[in-house]
Amino acid sequence: MLRTVSWLLRTGAYVFIGLKTFTHPPAGTATLVSAAAAYVLSSLALLLWGLTEARGDEAADRSLMLLLLGAAAVLAGYASAAPHAESLIGLSLAFVMQLGTQASLAVGWATAGCTVAAVETGVLANGAGREIALGYPVLVAAVLIASHNRRAWRVRAEQSATLLAQTELLRAEQRQVAVLDERTRIAREIHDVLAHSLGALSIQIQAAEVLLTDHQDIDRAVTVLAGARRLTADGLTETRRAVHALRSSLAPLDEELATLANTHRQRHGVPVRLTVEGAPFALSADQALPLLRTAQEALTNAAKHASAQPVEITLTYEDDHVTLAVDNPLAQRDSQRPEFATLNGGYGLTGMRERLLLLGGTLDAAARDGRWRVCAEVPR
């Protein structure tokens, strides 16, 4: 819309200058020819100017357009010093403005200088007065300065548009990263919950199978299966919490660990001791949840590989970090005791280590002095 209005104004000015110049044409054949030539060249320059803008400002068209605009500005400047042709200076000013805005600084200054020289030459040839000899060069200089200001504004506008586009692209990428982070977070949470719940459930079912096939103890098998059913309900509840990302509902870490220890004690019938050392302080959900899931994974592994061994959980609060340690004696091989398996596939501790690394924490799991120890640490 703005471009259309600009071209309507340019066309109107061009027609007005032509009417004003040739309604009362300049006296003398040479003067009339120079005025007509300037007007015709200006029309060609305007036509190519419009075509160049419409066709996308191709390099070849742009070079020819700049050349025609410069020549038309100079010729119109020369003719404007003739009697009754003063309005042709308007074409020179329009072309100097365009060149000073769109072309390089050297082209703008060169066109303005040549136009001023042409005006002064016309003044000498036609004996024009002082007002033209001094006034027109001042007008050309003023228009050149205005064109530089317009050029600076255009450059700033283009830079602002580019910056805005880059900002929008960055925001879109940030939104995409946030979505991917959230998906990864929920996927990890679902995996951790399911790995713990299904692992414990698998152990319960295998224990019931052993009781039924090897010992024919139906009563104990029913009790174990009832525990498996409760475990399924608990797993569904935990999975819903993970799906809905209800981290804000997480209780203090020591309370969550106490509940976890009590649940493990009831399910597997082994002693579980929880020790809290240091002065407890509040942890964010992002800090507490990986520690809780690490404890769940360690307890699942203890039930799988050392089902009859007691477990010790130690939570230590220090000035700059929190440490969680879960350890139990290594089980002695017993041919009478079944070897339980889970669905984890060995990826549980790897997932825990990745979670803790994102927080700047560490995870160590190894056998030492006849005991299996899992130690997780997160910075405060």
Rank of each mutant, 00 (worst) to 15 (best):
V177M: 07
L170N: 10
L169Y: 13
T167M: 13
R154V: 13
A187Y: 04
N149A: 15
A178F: 02
T184F: 03
T184C: 02
A161E: 09
Q159M: 04
E182R: 05
L163P: 00
V155L: 04
T167V: 15
D181N: 10
A161R: 08
E173A: 11
E158R: 01
E168T: 13
S160V: 13
R185A: 12
A172W: 00
E158Q: 01
A161V: 11
S160W: 07
R183A: 07
D181V: 03
E182Q: 07
I186L: 12
A172S: 05
L163W: 08
S160I: 14
R151E: 05
A172N: 03
T167F: 13
R154W: 11
R183C: 04
A157G: 02
V177E: 05
E158V: 04
L164A: 15
L163G: 02
A165Y: 11
V179P: 00
L163C: 06
Q174V: 14
L170Y: 10
E182P: 00
V179T: 12
N149F: 15
N149K: 12
A152N: 01
R171T: 12
R171Y: 06
R185K: 08
R150W: 10
R151S: 08
R183K: 06
I186Q: 07
W153I: 10
A165E: 14
L164W: 11
R156F: 08
Q166G: 01
A178R: 02
W153D: 04
L180A: 05
D181K: 02
T184H: 02
Q176N: 07
R151I: 13
I186W: 03
R150P: 02
W153M: 06
E182Y: 02
E158K: 00
R150E: 12
L164Y: 10
T167L: 15
E173P: 01
L164K: 13
L163Q: 10
N149Y: 14
Q159I: 07
Q176M: 09
R175L: 14
E182V: 06
T167D: 13
R183M: 08
E173M: 10
L164I: 15
A161P: 00
S160M: 09
L163N: 06
R175N: 07
A152L: 04
V179D: 07
T167A: 15
R154Q: 12
Q159C: 01
A165K: 14
R171L: 13
A172L: 04
L170G: 09
S160P: 00
V179L: 11
L170S: 12
R154T: 11
A165L: 15
Q174E: 10
Q174Y: 06
Q174A: 13
R154M: 13
L169A: 15
A152G: 00
T162Y: 02
R154I: 13
R151T: 09
L164D: 12
R171E: 10
